[in-house]
Amino acid sequence: MNETKLSRGEGLGGALRLHPLLRMVLRRLGTGLMTLFVVSLIIFFGVSLLPGDFAQAMLGQGATPAAVASLRQHLGLNLPPSIRYVHWLGGMLQGDFGYSLAGTRISSILGERLFNTLFLAAYAAVISVPLAVLLGIIAALYRNSIVDRLINVVTLGAISFPEFFVAYILVLFFSVRLTLFPSLSQVSLGMPIWDRLYVCLLPALALTLVTMAHMMRMTRATIMDLLSTSYIETARLKGIAPWRIIVQHALPNALAPIINAIVINIAYMIVGVVLVEVVFVYPGLGQLLVDSVSKRDLPLVQAASMIFAAVFILLNLLADVLSIVTNPRLLHPR
């Protein structure tokens, strides 16, 4: 599949000499889809190898053999694994994830859970991305000063703390001691947006703290690299103010690595959200995954891990595509 994409991309590039960019993006998309395909194989066949009968587990030990057999027939469990895989994948592409252990349709639960998780991740991203870039620029601008060292030590600390530790510390201070925010983030569908934002602030802050460090360090390192180049020195000798040098001259060239770091961290956020959701008992996809793992509800585990993996892979793909598009130098790899 990779090969076909590659040759098609080259064919395209041959026909319209203008689009080496498009060719690279297509090639990257091809490998991304290929990865997604292999991951779905791993998730499906990994679970299928398990001993035990899903129909039996669904009905419980007291079920009659006839009932089990008819449920097996109904769920298509008698078909060979390869056909079941095709059904599973095809169903998923149409938004049908099959039935959970409790017999409910998985797709009816997933939608709201996924929305909640994406909402929380987006909320955290809105806080952390501008803050990280700003702090990174400040650290680069005043490098080796007290401010820089302080930011450096604090971010090193933030990487070293377990997510749930950060989350519990926030609960301890902001909800138990100061009683400003609730310690459980319970949300429902019809909730007004302001209530939702208020209730989700602590989990969003916890996510912000654990993901900010990497983005900030990346911003600082990239900007510092650029600040030592000669065109920045020229700008400085011309007497342009330091802030304008950074915003107008350094930042455009630093965009690719920074955007890359941001998107990778958002991908990480959507996955790292699992722990934070558990601490705040937030009804997201992560909480659902943890619950279904402890109940050994395999179809639900399959569906949730597939969605997490897909979001993660797609965001990483986006990070790569964005860094190709924003950096002309990447268009001509040696």
């Binding site: 679970v47 996955v271 790292g272 995954l289 993996a309």
Partner: peptide, 11 residues
Amino acid sequence: SIPQLIFAMLL
């Protein structure tokens, strides 16, 4: 390319 925590939970 599979998120580590999710993969570990699955396995």
